[in-house]
């Protein structure tokens, strides 16, 4: 049995919230550089260059790369031999979000669905806990902006539509999203499970580093094929026309009910923010 004190969790979540919003991952920067090589549209190239510059300014000056610093989505991967000491795990995460969004001058973007009254401190956080054997404790902070989240969808397809049907849904989703989710995007696809599980798979697919292959070679083939289809749409950077609409398609899949074919598409904007830490 290993003990982790909630104070350490608060501090870690606070720092991850700030770092995720100010330090764009090297994998995303490399994907921008690669996109710049392939983009043919002058406007598109200009935009990609500015995104690289924007990421550098954010990192150097410690200000958020995007003003929408997102809903704080936190993944907790923990071993069942870990004991949380000194208080509640959930409250520690909420407190870390509160402190991070305050101390990092991050925007508070969470409100009541009907009155639109802002909660004032960017809580609640969305917390996904995955309990596994062992004594590890890993936190992933993935702030998610509204523009790209709004373009995401879950659907329950008829099993008969097969791979082609899923592909059509994914490509159509990117097409209809057009410029709204701040292309170049990353397309997270969750296939299988239940209604809510498909959405979670799609979100988790976004956490895989850009440029890393899918562990399942069959899915890797689909990712390559679907990315090509998406990039034929011509939407381009910021939707102003171009070759690079998306930087990657990432798929996660699991078995589903014999009557169902759930599919979720979670669109991630170019501010593809996530930071991890192990305690």
């Amino acid at each position: 049995m290993r003990s982790i004190h909630v104070d350490d969790i608060v501090r870690t979540v606070r720092d991850l919230a700030i770092r995720a919003n100010t330090e764009l991952g090297e994998d995303v920067l490399r994907a921008f550089e690669a996109a710049l090589e392939r983009e043919e549209s002058p406007t598109g190239r200009d935009i990609l260059k500015r995104l690289i510059e924007n990421a550098q300014i954010a990192r150097d000056e410690k200000i958020p790369m995007c003003q929408d610093t997102g809903f704080a989505v936190v993944f907790v991967d923990m071993g069942q031999d870990v004991h949380i000491e000194g208080g509640s795990l959930r409250e520690a995460i909420e407190e870390g979000v509160r402190q991070g969004y305050r101390d990092g001058y991050l925007r508070k973007s969470i409100c009541h669905p009907f009155t639109r009254q802002n909660t004032g401190d960017n809580t609640p956080a969305i917390i996904h806990i995955d309990l596994q054997p062992g004594d590890h404790f890993r936190l992933t902070m993935a702030p998610k902006g509204g523009g790209s989240e709004n373009m995401s969808r879950v659907t329950m397809l008829t099993p008969a539509v097969g791979i082609q049907g899923v592909k059509d849904f994914v490509v159509q989703r990117v097409k209809e999203s057009g410029p709204n989710p701040c292309p170049p995007t990353i397309v997270g696809v969750g296939i299988g499970g239940t209604f809510e599980q498909a959405a979670l798979l799609a979100k988790k697919a976004l956490l895989r580093p850009l440029g890393s292959p899918n562990p399942d070679p069959e899915l890797q083939t689909l990712e390559t094929d679907w990315l090509e289809a998406v990039n034929r749409l011509g939407i381009g950077p910021q939707g102003l026309g171009g070759r690079i609409t998306s930087l990657a398609v990432h798929i996660q899949m699991m078995p589903c009910h014999i009557a169902s074919l759930p599919v979720a598409v979670n669109i991630q904007c170019h501010a593809a923010r996530h930071k991890e830490a192990s305690l």
Binding site: L51, N54, A58, E61, C66, C182, C269
Partner: peptide, 13 residues
């Protein structure tokens, strides 16, 4: 006019 979505740090300059 379109400004670059997500380039908030650059635009603030």
């Amino acid at each position: 006019f379109a400004a670059i979505g997500g380039a908030g740090a650059l635009t603030a300059r």
